[in-house]
Design a binder for these strands. Structure first.
Lengths: 136, 136
DNA sequence: TATCTGTTATAGCTCATCTATATCAGATAG
DNA sequence: CTATCTGATATAGATGAGCTATAACAGATA
């Protein structure tokens, strides 16, 4: 997994790391059991402080997305096939979706285009996964 | 427009105000030309500092969503019918959409449900608008 | 004139973000 | 056993974001 950061972004570094990992799992690039680099290794690769990488992993752990052992390091715990979401998650998520869709709507993006883009993104997730794991 | 804040949220107050205004415009509750309360009035209603309300309006102005005159106060400048989005906007937006969809996917929400929720939210926008402005 | 508006400036507080060191313990390779 | 990797934890400092508190100024309006 190649991880590029935008140090000029308003989005905190640890948040960017978290987002990229989540997207990589959705893409199928990482699956349940995949090992992530150690916090020190990741920090060295990204030329950031060790604690910032640590915070990113801590965030992913709090979300239940990765698991951290002293022995095996950071390992992916959830992927799209790991089971249904926690109760209430989807509704919370929809609240954030609503804000995002409202913004695009106000800026004049047609509803049909928004649906198309949603579908396109989801298809890209699915395509990536079926590419990595061809149907037996 | 009734505006409720969550002071315990991690989302900054000025961001919450901005989000609620954007959603109200998408809903059709506010349309191009609608007047918003003055910053001092809004701050008093929400029991927050005047500068925080000011920052929210400043953010909306930077996004081109409202217009601020000393004379007429804050007025909605953009609504879903104000024309096409700025070039490059939709692509930027899709990047944020991708992160949001990836998160839900990783948490196990099926793609079909995500599409349904997107459509549902967009329909709620449209319904609200047609309710306020019934077809002649 | 009194009062509303937006605009701007300054200052202070709290907390988030990021970095810099340092230490400790368990696991592992030599 | 020793050296070295790992995660976990503590402390401290720098910088900036977020929010509040006053204050002052200018234009519009009643």
């Amino acid at each position: 997994m190649l991880l590029t950061l935008d140090l000029d972004s308003e989005v905190p570094i640890y948040q960017q790391i978290r987002d990229r990992v989540v997207e990589a799992i959705a893409d199928g690039e990482l699956t349940e059991g995949s090992a992530l680099p150690s916090t020190r290794q990741l920090a060295a690769d990204l030329a950031i402080n060790f604690h910032t990488a640590n915070k990113a992993y801590d965030l992913l752990r709090q979300e239940g997305i990765i698991r951290i052992n002293r022995k095996s390091g950071a390992v992916v715990r959830r992927d799209p096939g790991s089971g249904p979401p926690a109760p209430g998650y989807a509704d919370d998520w929809q609240g954030r979706l609503r804000t995002l869709l409202a913004e695009a709507t106000v800026h004049g993006v047609p509803g049909e285009e928004l649906i198309q883009r949603c579908g396109g993104v989801l298809t890209s997730f699915h395509d990536q996964r079926t590419t990595k794991e061809p149907s037996v």
